[in-house]
Design a protein around this nucleic acid. Structure first.
Lengths: 306, 306
DNA sequence: CCTGACTCATAAAGCCAGCTTATGCCCCCA
DNA sequence: TGGGGGCATAAGCTGGCTTTATGAGTCAGG
């Protein structure tokens, strides 16, 4: 494609407003109605769709004096746009909860893996079922989650761990495994290669900064195999860790939830590890006693049918 | 959440440029380096991150005279942002192929379901493995795909159908099932409810416009049960169909690939159907003879390990 | 102990994308 | 033969993001 990849993605992909507009046109069958739904004028919508078509180099909408219909290419682009918008909705749900004031109707405390990969989807679903429910999110490790709950600073918690913390009741809502991944091309990526727990322990890995649940589980599991080596690289977000691993900087250990996409597309290769179990349960928890009522009950119900 | 939901998503979610910048900061550990990577100046990056923090109401980055690190909230937001950016990359890969000139190195013809749900991911992976491979995409039904291949207008095809079209060889790359979905609250959503093929045939459904592979399969499967009713609603994209179904307008039949997310979050409920099989194979196809070489071979290899 | 290299923040000024209002044309239906 | 819905074009405004230019804090090394 004659495009220089140096020009950033944001100049090649229409902005969210334009994508939302396109979805509205697909749904409503008219530029004008779509414009009204988004609170802009019809000429603004017209121009916006037109400039999106110019940017993509593809006609998306067939205009007629009786409305607008998607072209074949437009239908494809609209579906692809839908996935961006879905991700944006999850982002928004998460971000709102993150800034949510402590007086929210539902205060959730969750560990990182859950907050990263499961909670945004739950929040979107909760918002659909119980519109207007105000949720606040506090992310931290298991100990911090337990403390929030026991202090009454949170109504419902989610932890990733081997056992339910002292003073809490809980149910398993999902299961997660830590897996070792490397870039294709890494020596460990060879088919059939199995890494021993001892090898893994002796290898400097790309990891999140200390304190992450993943790292604690790994530490515990490898304690009897020589102990975890000092990291090769310490990064501040799972996304950064994945990026480093994909770029071939070295081996990493990540939640299965985190790398599904990358492993599917073979941007990362999963490495078998012998002699050590890295599975863990993800649990909803609350202070010992009756299960939460109200919005907490609604959210809890959601998590058990994903 | 004191936010009015009336203000559109695009005003509550930072734009792609800002999200890319945040990812770069997470990866590189410095606003200045991130700015350079994106080809903007350091003050621009500084201001952009700041305005994103203002927009979200959360501090994302801890600045210091020796660099910048993500806060705990920042790490979460960064991971959520990563998923938006991934979707945008798939969008971009697809859009480029859609506008790709006919002189591209690899000309792909694909049916809708595949072009919508599988191809963008494959193209991203192909771009990672073989940078610079120019791909063009032509979407159409199985007959159109076959024609393109036989006329030499396409190098590799993907069809969703019961059999390999005349004159082509092929391999199955994935399997898909059509499923009946309704909004929770629809009479058919009751647990244990099983719909008969005859009932389904007699019910007006929300469908894509005519000519879609989904609709053809449905038509064939229901022919012996009274024939498909006239649609309740005909919409121009899968996304629009899903939106109508979610909003409770009626029952719809969609590819399993299309509604995974919605069913997972129970925005849609899958309905069992008795007496009719709606599965179909998704195949890569090429003109009878040797399998494609060059970039076509690379793409084919990709599709068989997802 | 001071210099240079790195970090980030602030200020001033310019540009461009997208918005609105005001039109005009086209098609269909009553 | 109007009236209403639908889209396009033109002109003018505005706000956000950008760049350049600068200042201030931290650290390593001569």
């Amino acid at each position: 494609m004659s495009q220089e990849p140096s020009i950033p993605l944001s100049h090649r992909v229409p902005d969210l407003g334009a994508l939302e507009l396109l979805l509205a046109v697909a749904r409503l069958g008219s530029l004008g109605r779509a414009a009204k739904e988004l609170g802009i004028t019809q000429p603004a919508a017209s121009g916006r769709i037109r400039s999106m078509e110019r940017q993509l180099g593809v006609t998306l909408v067939e205009r007629s004096p009786r409305g607008s219909r998607l072209t074949a290419a437009g239908a494809l682009v609209t579906d692809w746009a839908g996935r961006i918008v879905e991700a944006a909705e999850a982002f928004d749900a998460g971000a709102r909860a993150l800034r949510g004031r402590r007086d929210s109707r539902l205060r959730v405390a969750a560990s990182m893996t859950i907050a990263e990969y499961l909670l945004p989807g739950w929040l979107v679903a909760l918002q659909a079922e119980r519109p207007g429910t105000a949720v606040s999110l506090l992310a931290g490790n298991s100990a911090a989650v337990a403390r929030q709950l026991l202090e009454g600073a949170a109504d419902l918690g989610f932890v990733e761990g081997l056992a339910v913390p002292e003073g809490l009741d809980g149910v398993v809502v999902a299961r997660d495994r830590l897996i070792v991944v490397v870039a294709p091309g890494h020596p460990w990526a060879r088919a059939g290669r199995v890494v021993t727990a001892r090898e893994l322990a002796a290898t400097p890995l790309i990891l999140r900064e200390e304190g992450s649940g993943t790292r604690q589980v790994l530490d515990a599991a490898l304690a009897e195999h020589g102990g975890l080596s000092a990291p090769l690289l310490e990064l501040s977000s799972t996304t950064a860790v994945k990026a480093a691993a994909v770029s071939g900087a070295g081996a990493s250990v990540l939640s299965e939830l985190a790398v599904g996409e990358e492993v599917g597309a073979r941007r990362l290769v999963r490495v078998e590890v012998a002699g050590v179990a890295l599975a863990r349960d993800l649990r909803a928890v609350w202070p010992t006693g009756p299960a939460p009522a109200g919005p907490g009950r609604d959210l809890l119900a959601l998590t058990r049918r994903g």
